[in-house]
Nucleic acid binder design. Sequence first.
DNA 1: TGAACATATTCTAATATCGGTATATGATGC
DNA 2: GCATCATATACCGATATTAGAATATGTTCA
Lengths: 135, 135
Amino acid sequence: MARSATTSDVFNAIGDRCRRDILITLGAGEHDVTALVERLRSAQPQISQPLVSKHLKVLREVDLVRCRHTGKRRFYRVNAEALRPVHVFTARFEQMWNERLDRLDDVLLGMQEHAEHPAGTHSPDTNTANESGAS
Amino acid sequence: MARSATTSDVFNAIGDRCRRDILITLGAGEHDVTALVERLRSAQPQISQPLVSKHLKVLREVDLVRCRHTGKRRFYRVNAEALRPVHVFTARFEQMWNERLDRLDDVLLGMQEHAEHPAGTHSPDTNTANESGAS
DNA sequence: TGAACATATTCTAATATCGGTATATGATGC
DNA sequence: GCATCATATACCGATATTAGAATATGTTCA
């Protein structure tokens, strides 16, 4: 078979650079499409309005943006809460990297102590014993 | 023209469900490929070893996983720091949703104070310094 | 050396996705 | 109604990406 479904998924939606730029721009406050296109052009001079509208559609479909719609203009804004799944996902690992820094501290402290009480240690550097953690 | 470059980009790497599952599984601790495939199968019974290896390659290329390689086995683990760009990106918006909650708190506090001493003008210390790791 | 195992790569086909251009929809004002 | 502005959609071509099957690479052990 082929590619599995990816759209209508927040993770995929933010996978695109252009859409991230849109979100960042809208993060500064509501914009209508014309204003949004104009601001995006400062980074990507040749971006087109239809393209932006298409990206907005994707973002809308995953509820990352919402639009208020007065007269002929449509004002888009970010719905930050839709990013929560991403945040939750990364948070799990953020904890890991903090733990590693803590462990690094431990190592450094250990080295310090070693420097004071030196002992012959041979280090088989590729074959360190590993703790496989949970099953 | 066509699609813009997406691969070799952490955001894209986590856009795939299967790769996220791999990361979550590896988050519990180092696994060799066989063990990883086996655990993934509990969620996706028909997943194949070659497919997992291919996803691991993508993850490796963006440095989201690293592998230690002893004998015929390769032990993969998560390199959580590679997720930082994603975390930074979401953090910006997380702040937005917290601000909204904070503002709600302020409103509620304001109402409370108003109830106690109606003329009170307190310094609104809403701008607490946020730690958000250095780049 | 060769069998058995663990993992990676190559090849292929299906399809999703992006960007461009042209056009459609919808609202406003004359 | 008609012109105009603001935005969305349809269509197209190019390419990326995924999954599957077969195969290659590399390691250990007999």
